[in-house]
Design a protein around this nucleic acid. Structure first.
Lengths: 132, 132
DNA sequence: GTAGCCCCTGTAGCTACTACAGGATCAAGA
DNA sequence: TCTTGATCCTGTAGTAGCTACAGGGGCTAC
């Protein structure tokens, strides 16, 4: 199932210029070309691109994504380094999960308070800005 | 406890230019000035700024943050609109939580596979790029 | 053979910051 | 009192991560 760039982008839910940009900065590999010079992508490209997009939506920087991807690409990591990297990221991720849960609760609370035509008092800011 | 800009930024964990930028685009209000012309911030500014920063780290765009903040600022929403907005965001948030959980699991699995000096096979990409 | 859709490359614009320059203000110490 | 250092002010320019558009070419289908 070789894909062209447009189809790859469509399946990953991003636009074609983004793919191009990732290739330019080396985050995605340059794929082989077919006869006519069009780029030809495989399943693994889609997998990788999808991963990058999801990670970006979760607030990771491209540098952090690069970091995670090197775990896959490189193989020049020692076991200890992998664990350290993984641990650092799991802490970060846990913090994000906690924040999202609080936000979730706040939004639910808010929409539950909705009755009639009045605008309810909004707890969302207070909840997400709690220090902890 | 009136704060100056630098202290406000420090407490919210961002840098001073970011505060300035948010004020320029109207996401943060222009605070009153003290005698000497320095900006003077209150607790509520810190709360708001902290909220914005957290939301940004969670991958929300400034436009989405703006959207959420209008729930607090405005009061020109009907109850139905609030609920619709809240619902839309809770779906989005739930998706993010799910993705983060998967990523979390993958990282833990990976670091558990670590034994000796070998670099383990990395399940992280496959897991986060699953379609669902 | 030409219309429509997708590909190619290059370049410019946008969002969300971030950094730096050049000068003023203020508290603390010599 | 004068200086040193930290902070403030304003303006402007640069960076990261896309996004849009221009100008041209290749396929397929009528």
């Amino acid at each position: 199932m070789p894909l062209r760039r447009g189809e790859l982008a469509r399946r990953a839910g991003c636009n074609i210029e983004t793919v191009r940009y990732y290739e330019r900065i080396g985050l995605m590999p340059n794929p082989p070309r077919s006869e006519n010079g069009f780029r030809s992508y495989e399943e693994r490209h889609l997998t990788r691109l999808t991963f990058i997009r999801r990670a970006r939506e979760l607030g990771f920087t491209l540098e952090e994504v690069q970091d995670l991807l090197r775990l896959v690409d490189g193989g020049h990591y020692t076991c200890a380094q992998v664990q350290e990297l993984a641990l650092r990221h799991t802490d970060d991720i846990q913090r994000k999960i906690n924040d999202l849960h609080r936000m979730q609760r706040a939004l639910k609370e808010m929409s539950a308070q909705c009755s009639g035509e009045e605008v309810p008092k909004c707890p969302i800011i207070e909840i997400l800005s709690e220090t902890s």
